[in-house]
Design a protein around this nucleic acid. Structure first.
Length: 262
DNA sequence: CCCTATGTTCCCAA
DNA sequence: CTTGGGAACATAGG
């Protein structure tokens, strides 16, 4: 579920709550997560995001990495009992963080050293057109699959890939190496605007997503194409279609996202 | 029963 | 090596 804006939302909400706080207890409820030990008594030094991965940096070079996959999320609680599908609880003196994950695909791993994730550049940090154009010259993938390839660009998933391509007026099936420099400028600009607004909205709650405090995000109210099959395109009035691309539902407007572009 | 699902990985075929 | 398709993982909802 969580793509870049959702994971960034968790990071920003977690920092004021847990940085500087000490873990008092860790409880692994779903054995599928594996063994997670040695956290007790350690202080949280920082919270960082790498693409869709969230890192809690701990004292003495330990680092806890979360990947939420499809339905994972974190919830801060200072009262009440555990919610259904709680898989892990990390407690502090002033409250606790629960990992909630109905489908159980999320992963939590503990690393001793500096982590070595093989991810591409982060769109928020490095989404300039010359870089995009340069790496696209080596790929014959459809541009949507290219944007979602985490080794090339980290953080964009199915929803935001659809949204960015619609805003940039690019057909998702175009080969990445066939786009002009001008089109990559358009994609970079669209990505910046969409991701920034999605973060300001605390993500898109199209189904399970909730922020750290259990609240829905707002970005689902601004979606241009995702989940809008059969509806009117806001730009040209055409009919939004949904087709599969590499097994993923792909929403687009065949009227204003077509042709070779510039 | 059917289909779908914000992700990743692995196997197999061109 | 590259790309695409399908399955797998596990569960809920329409």
């Amino acid at each position: 579920m969580p793509e870049l804006p959702e994971v960034e939302t968790l990071c920003r909400q977690l920092r004021p709550v847990i940085v500087g706080a000490e873990i008092t207890q860790t409880r692994v409820i779903d054995p599928k997560l594996g063994v997670i030990e040695g956290l007790q008594g350690r202080e949280i030094r920082g919270v960082t995001r790498y693409g869709k991965t969230l890192e809690m940096e701990l004292e003495r070079g330990l680092s806890l990495l979360f990947h939420f996959r499809m339905t994972g999320r974190l919830l801060w609680q200072d009262g009440n009992g555990p919610l259904p599908h709680t898989r892990l609880v990390i407690s502090f003196s002033h409250g606790r963080i629960s990992l909630i994950d109905p489908r159980r695909f999320a992963t939590v791993t503990l690393h001793e050293k500096r982590n070595c994730l093989s991810l591409g550049s982060d769109p928020l940090a490095d989404f300039n057109p010359s870089h995009l154009w340069a790496i696209a010259q080596q790929s014959a993938l459809p541009v949507k699959s290219f944007l979602m390839d985490q080794r090339r660009i980290a953080g964009i998933g199915n929803i935001y890939a659809c949204e960015i391509l619609h805003k940039a007026q690019v057909d998702p099936w175009r080969r990445a190496d066939s786009l002009s420099y001008k089109e990559w400028e358009g994609i970079g600009e669209a990505a910046g605007k969409i991701l920034t607004r999605a973060i300001a909205c605390r993500g898109a709650s199209v189904s399970d997503w909730r922020d750290l405090f259990g609240k829905e995000g707002e970005h689902q109210n601004y979606l241009l194409v995702y989940n809008r099959e059969g509806a009117e395109c806001y730009r040209c009035g055409g009919r939004i279609e949904r087709r599969k691309l590499n097994g993923r539902g792909t929403y687009y407007c065949p009227t204003c996202q077509n042709g070779e572009g510039g």
